[in-house]
Structure formats: C-alpha cells, structure tokens
C-alpha cells in the first residue's frame, strides 16, 4: 500500500513560486507530486475510475490556466488543489444530490472489552471500508480524507472546506462516529449471518 505524503510547506512554497514564474519544470514537478494525492482524494469520493481521472486531470489543467492568469494561487498550493478538486466533485454530483444518511443507534462500547470493535476494523476488507466511507455525508467524507488520509492540519482543512476550525472539529468528531456506526452495522450483520 502506498502512503502518500505531501511535501513539506517550504518545498511546496518554492515549487509554487517557481511555477508562478512560469517555470515548466516546476509545473511538471507539481503534477508528479500532487497528482497522486488529488487523484486519491477524488477517487475515494467518486467510485468510477474514469470520472476520477477526468476530474483529477481537470484540476491540473485549471492550475495551468490559473498560473497564466491573475488567479494564480499565492500560497498553499495544496489548499488550492484540494479546493478545486472538491468543487469539481460537487459539480459532478450536482448540488441537488441528497445524501442518504442512515440514522443508526449510538454504538456504545462495552467498558470491559473495547477491543472487539478495533479487531473488527482491522479485519475489514478495503472495499467495505470504501463503501462505508461513501455512505457518509459529503462533508464527513471530506473531513476524514483530508485529516486522516492526506494528513492536513485542522486549519488547512478548514481553509479547503471554507469553514471555521471549530466547525471542522465537531464535523470530524461526528464523521468518525458515524463511520463507526456504519461499520458497527456490518459487524452485527456478520454476527447474525
């Protein structure tokens, strides 16, 4: 399994500055480095690989346009890229898409034995995890992907999602717990079947 690590901020700022000077090597470098995380982010939100590829491609084509107009990002290249990716995903789904958020009973860990749930998580197969993720509300998926997969900071995540940090804090809290509930359903099914 690949673990994608974004470059450190200093490297990112150098690359961005070079790209703003129309340095083509820097642009290609940005593509090499940032395509994988952007594609992963989109692909986990959009199940279809071709759509994910198109949207990810579009993010970078837009970066070129932005760099050559007055809209070039001045700071936080990653913030800009994820924000554009997010907008494209939203456009793709359309604003009207209704999220079917299942209401589930609160999962209460048994005080004596917290491990079975964790054990169960670790044994889950990847497709089930992806399915469970997609059952979350859009913003809950986003916050988990940005915070846990992309390892972005609370502030960066807040900037990308256009919310304040307090809202992101409670959103991520709800997101992990909703995910637990959905997975808990799987677990019960497993035990029943």
């Amino acid at each position: 399994m690949i673990v994608i690590v974004l470059p450190d901020i200093a490297t990112e700022d150098r690359l961005l500055a070079a790209a703003r000077r129309n340095d083509q090597d820097a642009m290609m470098h940005i593509y090499d480095i940032y395509f994988p995380p952007i594609y992963s982010f989109i692909r986990l939100r959009v199940a279809d690989t071709d759509t994910a590829e198109d949207l990810a491609s579009d993010v970078f084509v837009r970066l070129v346009s932005a760099m050559r107009s007055r809209n070039a990002p001045h700071h936080s290249l990653r913030g800009w890229l994820f924000r554009v990716a997010r907008n494209l995903i939203n456009d793709h789904y359309g604003r009207s898409r209704k999220i079917t958020e299942e209401v589930l009973e609160e999962w209460v860990p048994s005080p004596n034995d917290p491990d079975p749930e964790v054990q169960f998580f670790r044994a889950l197969d990847i497709e089930r995890v992806r399915r469970a993720l997609r059952m979350l509300a859009d913003d809950q998926q986003e916050v988990l992907l940005l915070r846990f997969s992309q390892m972005l900071s609370l502030q960066e995540t807040a900037d990308i999602m256009g919310r304040n940090v307090g809202a992101i804090k409670s959103l991520q809290f709800r997101a992990v717990n909703t995910l637990r509930q959905i997975l808990g359903e799987y677990r019960m099914e497993g035990e029943r079947g």
Partner: peptide, 24 residues
C-alpha cells in the same frame, strides 16, 4: 481508540498505487 481506528480506516481505503500511476 475506536474513533481513531475508525478514522485511520480512511487511510486503509487508499487507492492502489498502480491505479494512481495509470491515471497519472
């Protein structure tokens, strides 16, 4: 613990490297 483990599952859901490479 279960909250963090649940959150970390998003990392496990990561897309296969080959798929990313092909798309890229």
């Amino acid at each position: 613990r279960p909250m963090l483990e649940a959150g970390l599952l998003t990392k496990r859901a990561a897309i296969a490297p080959l798929e990313i490479q092909i798309a890229q």
